[in-house]
Amino acid sequence: MTTGLPVSTILLITGFALALIGIWGMLTHRNILRIIIGFAVMDTGLHLVMVATGYITAGTAPILDVALSPADAPHRAIDPIPSALVVTAIVIGLSVTAVMLAYAIRLYAAKKTLSIDAFTESKW
């Protein structure tokens, strides 16, 4: 099935759509857990965008084996740099999510609620 759009453009649109959903979720929900979920969705969307920018028309994974000889690689391999950066980005996203969840647990222990409206001390 062909859709006319190149595959990386479809991936870009999907990623940006996920990022928008995440931003919407983060800003409209008042429950801290939902805000964290919104962040995770936005993060995933941006990872998709980063991976998509590395795609090269009719390219393949930059792993040399029987199907991809070293002489062939410069013409057929996709850009490996965004993929390598996304590995880092995923780990950092996981770290940020873990710290946010730990803070959520602490906040719940302090006020017995997860609604962000209950935490007014640091509101200016």
Binding site: T9, L12, F16, Y55, I56, P74
Partner: peptide, 23 residues
């Protein structure tokens, strides 16, 4: 985002740095 998608052209060759790494 729409402007970015609209201005995006799928690459048909590696960027110079990526070419360096791949070779």
């Amino acid at each position: 985002f729409a402007r970015m998608v609209g201005g995006y052209v799928e690459l048909d060759a590696l960027r110079p740095l990526a070419l360096d790494y791949v070779t």
